[in-house]
């Protein structure tokens, strides 16, 4: 190869490599900053909650309209639950406290506890129950058919299990906390066990990500 050809080739290779390197650099720089990894499940095109009607602890019907425009932390349980439900509601109280520094959640966040044991949990009982954890927490329940309209959409399972030989029973139930967005989007499912700082951080990330 002639000397000039070799030089030209070398120059070409150097420029090509440089262009390649620069291209990569700018591509990475301009790529949308992928949000910090959010664990739990964040659906890319989240399905929306369809209409439902429960009986609110405040004596009024609680429909999907109560969730519209809000970031709702939704948890299903029952008041005869000694361990999981009080623990989770305690954790959610801590979570809402930690999220006071998220202006969006502080303004539009809410917690909703739904009892899957309407036979023992009347709406009025629920007011007293959740009120113990936080006065602002909402609660509701409904007879089996209307309750199923919500639980089946969300894949929430619940079964009565007898305790001993008498009438007493406990309820095995899905212990996840769900995050529903302002447009009724089913945004995330957080499986138990829950740690408040971790849950708050993830919720904050999701809200920030979606608000961009």
């Amino acid at each position: 190869m002639a000397a000039t050809d070799r030089t030209a080739l070398a120059l070409f290779v150097v420029i090509a490599l440089l262009a390649f390197a620069l291209g990569i650099h700018f591509a990475r720089k301009n790529a949308p900053e992928s949000s910090a990894p959010v664990e739990g499940m964040l659906w890319p095109s989240p399905p929306r909650l369809e209409a439902f009607m429960l009986d609110g602890a405040d004596g009024k019907p609680l429909t999907e309209e109560v969730l519209a425009g809000k970031w709702t932390l939704l948890f299903f349980g029952f008041t005869h639950c000694p361990d999981v439900c009080p623990t989770t509601l305690s954790t959610l109280r801590e979570v809402t406290s930690l999220l006071k520094d998220s202006p969006e959640f502080a303004k539009n966040g809410q917690v909703l506890f739904v009892s899957v044991d309407p036979a023992r949990d009347a709406p009025a009982d629920l007011a007293q129950y959740v009120g113990h954890f936080d006065r602002s927490f909402r609660a509701a329940t409904a007879p089996p058919a209307r309750l199923a309209a919500l639980t089946s959409q969300l894949g929430i399972l619940h079964t009565r299990v007898k305790l001993g030989s008498g009438e007493d029973y406990t309820v095995d139930h899905t212990a996840s906390v769900l995050l529903i967005g302002p447009g009724l989007e089913r945004l995330a499912v957080f499986s138990a066990p829950h740690a408040a700082p971790d849950l708050a951080a993830r919720i904050r990330q999701i809200i920030e990500f979606l608000q961009d």
């Binding site: 361990d83 406990t170 095995d172 899905t174 499986s191």
Partner: peptide, 12 residues
């Protein structure tokens, strides 16, 4: 009692 978390469900 024992709470058991099985596939997202709490069982007692």
């Amino acid at each position: 009692h024992e709470t058991q978390l099985v596939e997202g469900r709490a069982r007692m």
